[in-house]
């Protein structure tokens, strides 16, 4: 299955990845090859097969509703690139 440049640009935008202009042809080729590989799946009839999300078909365990975490802001924000007055900073978002 062949993707073209605009497909790759669209996907890169969806995934918020800046891709260098000169790398687009290689990505396009790589991604097309990978899609060819995965498309081998389409040869198999799986219409009666229940999709498997977890190998053990396990079910969700429930947590008690209790507050177990204290304020740990100083520690957690020590690795943040930009913090002011306890708020994470990003370039102005316009709605």
């Amino acid at each position: 299955m062949a993707l073209d440049r605009s497909d790759v640009e669209k996907i890169a935008h969806l995934a918020r990845l800046q891709i260098d202009e000169q790398d687009i042809p290689e990505y396009t080729q790589n991604l097309s090859n990978i899609l060819d590989l995965v498309n081998q799946m389409q040869a198999v009839d799986t219409s009666d097969v229940e999709p498997m999300a977890n190998a053990l078909d396990a079910v969700q365990r429930l947590r008690k509703d209790a507050v177990t975490e204290d304020n740990n802001r100083e520690n957690l924000q020590s690795v943040a690139p930009a913090v002011e007055n306890g708020l994470f900073q990003v370039p102005k978002v316009i709605e």
Binding site: L3, D7, V8, I11, A12, L14, A15, L17, Y27, L31, I34, L35, V38, M41, Q42, V44, T46, V49, E50, P51, M52, A53
Partner: peptide, 25 residues
């Protein structure tokens, strides 16, 4: 990018769901 493409609108059944079915096989 492969993952974003496989999950994008219209492809879910043909890719992710299909792969989960094959997983069971």
């Amino acid at each position: 990018m492969v993952g974003a493409y496989a999950l994008s609108e219209g492809f879910y059944d043909a890719y992710y769901k299909k792969a989960q079915q094959i997983r069971r096989l």
